[in-house]
Design a protein around this nucleic acid. Structure first.
Length: 269
DNA sequence: AGCCAGGCCCATT
DNA sequence: AATGGGCATGGC
């Protein structure tokens, strides 16, 4: 067991609420521990614990997690803009609480294919088993590790009818037929269409991948929770497609952030 | 026991 | 373009 010099970093509680940021459904690889959380991303790991007026972040790659938690971004500016919106004013706090994490695109593609018509505790369990069985030191598995499995393997970890989606998507990426980096070059609209060529990726999952994996805020994932929220906000019954159009028009380039605050407010009542 | 979950695919219209 | 049924699994 090599000895590691633990580095640590203090983060102000005014800049982020770790509990809300981790528990709002954008990440599935975190574990509550005494006084904080363990957080995993790709092959990296940190602990983040609460102290009196701050959090203490410990990792062997603290710079990765400083960026991961989006602490370089000016969320006060985002919140000021959103706070001016009538429909949001009750959901926007006085200082940044939730931040959109900067996660890995491939990890998001796999994770949100799994998320479809599924519940969060079970999603976390499936992803955890995949990391334990396919990942090096329980890291998030590589594309090739995913692509070299069988449908039956994926069924054995609980993926059900999503098993072929995961395998076929991994194969498309591993073969180069789908280029994860090409997404960066596309407009959000074109990127969404491109992502939807992957098996198991529909409109909602594509929006989540763009929001959490590519940091595109001009998306609005419409899921079962948003469908409940929408009626409260607009007081009209429309199709999910119309919902997304209207929500994007309402919240513009900050839709993804608005969605996350709304999602969080609704789930916590 | 039965409903539901951060929906997608596919067949019909 | 838009709708509707079917779907594996297990948390609650």
């Amino acid at each position: 067991m090599p000895f590691l010099y633990n580095l640590f970093m203090k983060i102000s509680k005014n800049d982020i609420d770790i509990k809300q940021t981790l528990e709002c459904g954008q990440i599935f690889r975190y574990i509550p521990i005494k006084g904080g959380y363990e957080v995993y991303s790709l092959d990296k790991y940190c602990t983040i614990k609460e102290c009196n007026d701050c959090y203490v972040l410990e990792s062997d790659d603290e710079n990765y997690f400083y960026n991961f938690f989006a602490l370089n971004d000016d969320y006060n500016a985002y919140l000021n803009t959103l706070r001016a919106n009538e429909k949001l004013k009750n959901c926007i706090p006085s200082s940044p609480t939730i931040r959109i994490l900067k996660q890995d695109p491939f990890e998001m593609i796999i994770s949100f294919i799994i998320s479809a018509n599924n519940n969060i505790p079970r999603i976390k369990g499936i992803i955890s088993r995949l990391c334990l069985k396919l990942g090096v030191n329980a890291a998030f598995p590589t594309v090739n590790a995913f692509a070299s499995q069988s449908v039956d393997f994926y069924k054995s970890v609980g993926l059900g009818y999503r098993a072929p989606y995961i395998l076929d998507t991994a194969k498309k990426i591993a073969s180069g037929e789908f280029d994860i980096n090409y997404v960066y070059k596309l407009s959000t609209e074109d990127a969404k269409k491109y992502l939807m060529t992957l098996p198991g990726v529909g409109p909602k999952v594509a929006d989540c991948i763009l929001l959490f994996g590519y940091n595109r805020f001009d998306v609005f994932p419409v899921d079962t929770w948003v469908k409940k929220i929408y009626l409260d906000l607009f007081n009209e019954e429309v199709s999910p497609i119309k919902m997304r159009e209207n929500l994007l028009r309402e919240f513009g380039d900050l839709s993804g952030i608005a969605q996350q605050y709304l999602f969080n407010a609704k789930r916590n009542y």
